[in-house]
Write a protein that binds this DNA or RNA. Structure first.
Lengths: 154, 154
DNA sequence: GCTTGACCTGGAGCGCGCTCCAGGTCGCAT
DNA sequence: ATGCGACCTGGAGCGCGCTCCAGGTCAAGC
């Protein structure tokens, strides 16, 4: 069975698979990046080749790629993605994969929280500039510095 | 005049200013990075020096640095921070600074939104691993791929 | 049969953002 | 006066993640 747990695959995949160009478009990477990832061992296996030695990406490959992109876009390093790939090639490593994912999740959440706080500071800053320009005109003693309060007491 | 709009400065600054080491600690950067930023023109001015040619960071400098860190941590490039610094050195550029900040804000918000969606996918993935390991045991045909659905219809 | 364009491989190059190093100075404590 | 640690400058080096290039093959359309 090996059903790939993907309700909505990123794109319709014909039986003979997608060319590297189409696959790249489908997952939002460049052709070069796709080849680079393969070289770096981030794929479960090198993409299967057709008669002429060209890569053909099946649903399976596309599914993995979509997940890979998700990990990369949440800031997982190439090295850590490789760890996931290495684990995923071996059966019985589910617990370890889970650990990697959970650790990653923690980092993502922490990072979002920090960004959220910085965004609040940015908003305050923007508001002060808006007030300055909207109030009258920019005063000669301009509001210096891109700063603003960040968090509460330190 | 020239009040720096900082309710809560990041740290208490003695009248003679902070050494580069203390300033670095205060804003969470390395000493090298602080010197690098100065070299790159990200500060409003090179930090003032004491008799022996050593940098002394005043409240003003610390305030700018705090803002700079906020911009960097929300993903603004060195180049764009330099633009902000260049603008902030000239009076009457408030509107332009506002544009830069607003554009940056848009990017940050978009980025957070993408991360939020990816995080949801990550959570689904984690849940499926938890179910697999908790349910019974990892089945031989293990849940392949770090993937999962991402967004709804494309 | 020929052109065109997408693809192949191996490897070099690059932009970013630091980080480190060599060789030296300063100032405080012993 | 002598150490010591923190600081100085200019410049080299580096890790990451691609991106580009040369030189070649292959398949399809004209």
């Amino acid at each position: 069975m090996s059903d790939v747990l993907i309700p909505a695959p990123p794109v319709a995949v014909p039986p003979q698979g997608l060319s590297i160009g189409d696959a790249a478009r489908a997952v939002g990477l460049s052709v070069d990046t796709l080849r680079y990832y393969e070289k770096e061992g981030l794929l479960l296996d090198p993409a299967p080749r057709d008669g002429g030695g060209r890569r053909r990406y099946g649903e399976h490959d596309l599914a993995w790629l979509a997940g890979l992109v998700m990990l990369r876009e949440t800031g997982m390093s190439i090295a850590d993605v490789r760890v996931m790939a290495d684990l995923s090639r071996r059966a019985g490593t589910e617990a370890e994969r889970l650990v990697v994912l959970e650790r990653h999740r923690e980092r993502v959440v922490a990072e979002m929280e920090r960004t959220r706080r910085h965004l609040a500071a940015l908003d305050t800053k923007i508001a002060s500039y808006r007030a300055a320009s909207g109030g009258y005109d920019a005063s000669p003693h301009s509001p210096h510095s891109p700063d603003d309060q960040e968090e509460g007491p330190r």
